[in-house]
Design a protein around this nucleic acid. Structure first.
Length: 476
RNA sequence: GGCGGCGUACCCAAGUGGCUAAGGGGGAGGUCUGCAAAACCUCUAUUCGUCGGUUCGAUUCCGACCGCCGCCUCCA
């Protein structure tokens, strides 16, 4: 069934600034590189939105019958705290502040990050690669760029020659900004030996205070901030990849530079579809950023007794290209929807074939997903279908629901599994029996008292008309 | 200064040149219930920031204005 209807998948490509039909280079496997975290801080909910988006895109491609090979980097070296040519490595800074080695810091935050992804039911990429493990690949790539004459070596490092590149290529393809429009270097101090303030570092030299350094043909130093993505993407996915995604903030600098350095090395197109997601913003419309300091992380939600998957559902409630306002009430609203769906799994009929009327919902769902990942519309379809199932007392929709959840990632099947295996513990069972007796005795005071006790233990009583009761675990 | 985006009900958020402007949350009322819970039903934007223009017709296209935001420095 899945993907059997040959419906084209459409996605917005930042390169063309339009929604395009997606077709992979190799019909059998989509190559996908997404920008991962810099591991010097816990990733906040804004970051999580991006990873949920990436996961949803992958799931949507799979839903359309495509295999995906997904690579994500872990940046554990090279990102500066202040500006492009100096400053302090972020990982090193955290290491200093926390009194640990950079390696310890990177490994600590990498683990936290991966565990957060698990909580959000984000599938682990096929390859998760650390920049520090791929220095040799970066050096090799820089050599190629040098050989082709698009870079030069000076005392402070190896730089990409933007002027040279501009002569033969288009700069600013993504950002639509000409070099002259960019006020590069205006707000920061740049290395004095760069030929142009637009030039960016491929390899940084002569920074003796840096802890993380490697030998290179040009001297001891460390890689620039864009080269890792090009090097690792090529290493694992080839010189031209189908999809590359990242936050919208990466368009003007990071991805622009990636294209420049990659294409000057290979002479081939680097990325076929660039996909960018918008930010999660704070209540006042302010960006939730790392450098701004305070921002909520997944743990904050857990502490507020919010199911992490409610946050996932909350994110799916808006299009990935729209800014989304973070609002705890809206997340709780999403949580209600999540439990509405979970509640339905208890009524689902997995063993029965779907009712014919589910077909219309399948089609609507598929169309919404394939329309540039219109998850809000897709969600509306899901809720309408479940509502209809309840309303008409025809619960034979499990096949469709499970298929929808392969894209949404709300763990509905796991929920069903959990409920089916659930046993009422003995102590709860004792209360249940006492309550049944109280109800038979029409001692409703006692009965209500016991219900309160059960609630406190996490169980909800549902009384039926015939005098029987059902006990289900409360979601929260 | 340059580039980009946004402004839809109390809140979150889709969408369209013209059928009733999705869906959810919240609120109000109701069905069911001993009371609840769950679920279901009804109601909750004559209107889509403001003002113009194009059009038979605009919330949707164009322009101006107001407001908010992002990027141009690491950032999802």
């Amino acid at each position: 069934m899945k993907g059997s209807s040959l419906r084209p998948f459409f996605i917005y490509n930042s390169l063309s600034r339009s929604v395009e039909e997606f077709t992979p280079l190799d019909r059998d496997c989509v190559t996908y590189y997404s920008c991962g975290p810099t591991v010097y801080l816990r990733q906040h909910l804004g970051n999580m939105r991006s990873y949920i988006f990436v996961d949803t895109l992958k799931r949507a491609l799979a839903f359309n019958g495509m295999r995906v090979r997904h690579v994500m980097n872990i940046t554990d070296v090279g990102h500066m705290t202040s500006d492009a040519d100096g400053g302090e490595d972020k990982v090193e800074k955290t290491a200093r502040v926390e009194g640990r080695s950079p390696q310890e810091v990177a490994s600590f935050y990498t683990k936290l990050f991966l565990s957060d992804l698990k909580e959000l039911n984000v599938e682990t990429p096929d390859v998760v690669c650390a920049a520090s493990d791929h220095i040799a690949d970066m050096i090799a790539l820089i050599k190629r760029i040098l050989e082709r004459g698009f870079a030069y070596v000076v005392r402070s490092g190896v730089y990409f020659d933007v002027e040279k590149y501009r002569g033969e290529n288009r700069v600013g393809r993504l950002s639509r900004q000409s070099l002259d429009e960019q006020h590069a270097g205006q707000r920061l101090e740049h290395a004095p030996d760069k030929k142009s303030p637009h030039d960016f570092a491929l390899w940084v030299l002569n920074q003796p205070t840096h802890l993380m350094q490697w030998d290179s043909p040009w001297g001891r130093g460390y890689p620039g901030w864009h080269i890792e993505c090009s090097a690792m993407a090529m290493r694992y996915l080839g010189e031209t990849i189908d999809v590359h995604s990242g936050g919208i903030d990466h368009i003007p600098i990071h991805h622009e530079n990636e294209i420049a350095q990659s294409e000057s090395a290979t002479g081939k197109p680097f990325v076929r579809y660039f996909v960018h997601n918008a930010f999660l913003v704070g209540m006042e419309g302010a960006k939730i950023s790392k450098s701004a300091g305070k921002f909520p992380v997944l743990e904050d939600l857990v502490e507020a007794h919010v199911n992490p998957l409610a946050f996932r559902l909350f994110c799916l409630g808006a299009k990935y290209r729209s800014e989304l306002v973070f609002n705890i009430d809206a997340v709780r609203a999403a949580e209600r929807n999540l439990y509405y769906l979970y509640g339905f799994t208890a009524n689902a009929r997995p063993e029965e074939e779907d009712s014919p009327w589910t077909q219309a919902y399948r089609e609507r769902f598929h169309e919404a997903i394939n329309d540039d990942l219109n998850t809000p519309e897709a969600l509306a379809v899901v809720l309408e279908m479940v509502n209809k199932a309840y309303r008409e007392g025809d619960h034979r929709v499990w096949g469709a629901l499970r298929e929808f959840d392969s894209v949404l990632g709300l763990r509905l099947a796991e929920q069903l599994e959990y409920l089916s295996k659930l046993k009422v513990p003995a102590d709860i069972q004792a209360l249940v029996e006492q309550r049944a007796q109280a109800r038979r005795d029409k001692d409703f005071r006692r009965s209500d008292e016991l219900r309160t006790q059960l609630r406190a233990r996490g169980w909800e009583a549902k009384d039926h008309r015939d005098g029987t009761s059902e006990y289900v675990p409360r979601w929260n």
